[in-house]
Design a protein around this nucleic acid. Structure first.
Lengths: 104, 104
DNA sequence: TCGTTATATAATAATATGGTTATGTGAAAA
DNA sequence: TTTTCACATAACCATATTATTATATAACGA
């Protein structure tokens, strides 16, 4: 099925975007609140252009949105992204310690 | 937080595993039923060693289990994998056409 | 206007990924 | 026992990914 193949390809591309520790951490932070580029430059042990590149990838796929305020550019998660719900599931999964079973 | 960083790293590694179209399709098929290597060799337009390599990655991360029967090796999804539930969410997401809204 | 700050882009390099062909291995079949 | 079939592994190669440094740009402040 061509249709299914397309969905598989799209999903694998989406997951590739999330399959980097830096980008996942960026999204985790943006899930809490807006951040500017400089926040992330401080946060990570990589160069500013490296941070900029990660943000570009996330922006190009419309997973995050930007807003300019004075000399800063603020990023936030795009809640209208087709895979927004799945993104939340993944982000919340990371915050939830996997306690095997507490149903007692 | 060191603990959180570890969870982010683990999640990004898990997603990296799923971020390949061939592997995602393999998992999609295994979600339906067991398959041997030869099934996948027929299915995809890549060499047998390439298929074997994808299966090895999935096996090494314990995402799939194998069972030998005569000369064939059958693979199945490991329901005890820590991220099994998330895997199902992703697989089902691909099968569900995203109808924007039909709540009327 | 000029310097500074915040961010983006270009060029480049190291490493990772995913493919190929050639070959090895273990089980079944002749 | 020899051959064949199903699969794994090794060696190698092309491309993708992710980092770096150098440089450009846009907005602000003096």
């Amino acid at each position: 099925m061509i249709e299914t193949a397309k969905r598989v390809e799209e999903m694998s591309q989406f997951l590739k975007l999330l399959s980097d520790g830096t980008r996942l951490e960026i999204l985790r932070r943006l899930h809490v609140r807006e951040h500017c580029v400089c926040d992330f430059v401080e946060m990570f042990d990589i160069s500013q252009p490296a941070v900029s590149r990660h943000l570009k990838l996330l922006r190009q796929s419309h997973l995050i949105l930007e807003r300019r305020e004075r000399q800063w550019i603020y990023f936030r998660i795009n809640p209208d992204h087709p895979q927004y719900k799945l993104l939340l599931t993944i982000l919340e999964e990371m915050d939830t310690p996997d306690i095997p079973d507490r149903s007692c």
